[in-house]
Design a binder for these strands. Structure first.
Lengths: 231, 231
DNA sequence: CAGTGGTCTAGACCACAAC
DNA sequence: TTGTGGTCTAGACCACTGG
């Protein structure tokens, strides 16, 4: 190949052989040692190349069984979930935040079930708006578990949004994200550019930390919003 | 740590130090050499551990600048986009496929613009249904560029769905995926369990191969469908 | 049981970017 | 200029798993 063959070049060649060359779906590849020899690289390098191609979903690797080209590549979409502020400012638009309402209440039943809270658990309920160039971009409907995060009760979220406050307060957590289509309800109609019943693209995110539910949020987007990615 | 310290153990410890321990957001970590020494592993192993933690979005690594804990972890959602058949069968349900309509036509203007086709380009237009346990699960509305894929014109898609045919025919490609909410149109009302105007969760996928548009597909899902992932 | 991938090591050179 | 991560090598042992 070249004077110094890097694992990236090896990867490119492997992908080429899969997509254009002789290694059609289902092909059993030669072993790492043999391939390393053919490419003139060390087995370490060949291993890394194969591993990364495998992570891209093209290959299925198993000990003893060998490396096989997947019948259908595992197509995986990767979405970065930026803080809204970053998402908006990246487009060059001005970002503005507003708190619509804030209340400390006893968790309703559906929420208790959804978050796994104890009976009569207290939660902070927040509704916020995120604007791009003065136009409402996203409506945030958030519940925070006051037992897990007592500081949230005393936080006044009028200046700093709960999202930014949370990422700075809770170090990390397990997250479940869902994308769904919802019919616009009264709150969405009031704050976003929707008519009642319009299809709204929503992201729902539930967060745990050390097995305790921290927060559940629904992000409703303005008309025509799409979440897009390439690969 | 243990007798043999693996890079996974090192990773776990690094993540722990970030999330619970002394390495708060913004911290500059010691260099690889120093860390390797502290953990009693080779630099190669430490490098891999740091690289993978970095890929998870916790760390920002730059030559000369060093390794720094991100202020806010890059939260990224990864969705596997299985073939519908696999998605349905994984739930234990029976899968059934049906072709609703098939036509070879001149591409309408909006499609030419969207896919970048020449004037009067021919396309194959397919509408298909995917059933789970006899209930319509997904409505597939697909356009295939006949110039890029002449074989598609003669394919009769009554038994094998276009998705499965395509993954077996076109090796790989660049893909753009969008998630969006759409109002149910007549076709969706007819085939899915929707009323006119209902919010429908749709996935739109455009595919290119060697800079030529191959196919554009919209997948409309049944009521209440969510696309979910954890991390 | 034996073959294949998974991983670790020690040492080396290099490329990039901050100072 | 120089420190830091990026990568390659050669060799070795190990773990899983298919036959």
């Amino acid at each position: 190949m070249a004077e110094t063959t890097t694992f990236r070049e090896v990867m490119a060649e492997i992908v080429a052989r899969i997509t254009e060359g002789p290694w059609g779906p289902g092909t059993l590849l030669p072993g790492e040692v043999e391939l390393a020899e053919e490419f003139g690289v060390s087995r370490t390098t060949m291993n890394r190349a194969l591993r990364e191609v495998s992570e891209q979903g093209f290959l299925d690797r198993r000990r003893k069984a060998g490396t096989r080209v997947r019948m259908a590549p595992i197509r995986q979409a990767r979405f970065e979930m930026p803080v809204v502020r970053a998402e908006i400012e990246k487009t060059g638009a001005d970002y503005r935040y507003a708190l619509v309402s804030r209340a400390v209440v006893v968790a309703p039943d559906w929420l208790r079930a959804r978050m796994g809270l104890k009976a009569r658990a207290k939660v902070v309920h927040l509704v916020c708006l995120h604007f791009a160039d003065g136009v409402a971009f996203q409506l945030e409907d958030r519940w925070i578990n006051a037992s897990a995060l007592p500081q949230a009760v005393e936080q006044d979220f009028s200046v700093v949004g709960p999202n930014e406050w949370l990422v700075a307060t809770v170090p990390f957590s397990e997250v479940e994200i869902s994308f769904l289509a919802q019919a616009a309800d009264a709150l969405m109609v009031q704050h976003l550019d929707h008519a009642l019943g319009d299809p709204v693209f929503c992201v729902e995110r539930a967060t745990w930390w050390q097995n305790a539910a921290v927060t559940l949020v629904t992000l409703a987007h303005r008309r025509g919003y799409r979440m897009t990615t390439r690969y």
